[in-house]
Amino acid sequence: MTITLGQQQQLHARTLSALTIALASIIGFLAFTWPLFVTAENDQAARWLFLALMPLVTVVAIIEITYGGLNVKALAFLGVLSATGAALRAIGAGAVGLEPIWFLIIIGGRALGKRFGFILGLTTMLASALLTGGVGPWLAFQMMCAAWIGWGAGALPQIRSKSFEIILLAGYGAMIAVLFGLLMDLQLWPWIVSPASSIAYVPGASILENLQRFFIFHFATALAWDIPRAIFNIILIVVLGPAVLHSLRRAMQRGNVVFNRVHAM
């Protein structure tokens, strides 16, 4: 049961906006991975350009989903769910990656569809950053990552059996925990690793060589966060997932209206 975003007659416009979001996501992906295959002469340009363009494409994605395309109910759910996520983020305290925020984005995306999951990821991150002072160059990267996570949860295949669905989501939760760590590290890599060290990226070097360096960096720094995060996601999804998923679907169940004009005489 997904929220119907927008009206039927705007289907055409929606295809266009889906295309834009896909392109924006590709740009986002490049913004994470550019150090792997940047050429030596454009190294500095890529560094700053991607940093500047990431917020821009994030805003474009937000506009494409929200502008005239969200009904009141979806909007209220978006606001309330991202507040819940941000409130949970506060209690998770970020200790060793134990952030219940991912759980909420996954379940939200799963119950309300991939498009909603995408925007939920964006707004949850943004709202909590605005209130808790987490605004920095990394924000747009985090938002884009969260958006993909929400989208992915909605895009996973539909499964009838409730328990299999939870297993699937738990597996997904573990996977994205690792992937999120990987992507955020990738984004951090060119900034936090000084060129004066042997695990910095080398502009113009082969992808394989750069990947090797990156993984050393990743294993050395962030892996310790990924594993607890993955385990935490699995536990939350298994323990709370069925109930929360059920409640969300129950809340969305109020659906179609039938106006029966035959009897109205």
């Binding site: 109910k73 109020r254 179609n256 209206v257 029966n260 035959v262 009897h263 109205a264």
Partner: peptide, 12 residues
């Protein structure tokens, strides 16, 4: 009701 809640409605 019923625009927001859903439901089958007849009459005016």
């Amino acid at each position: 009701v019923p625009h927001h809640t859903g439901g089958i409605f007849s009459g005016a």
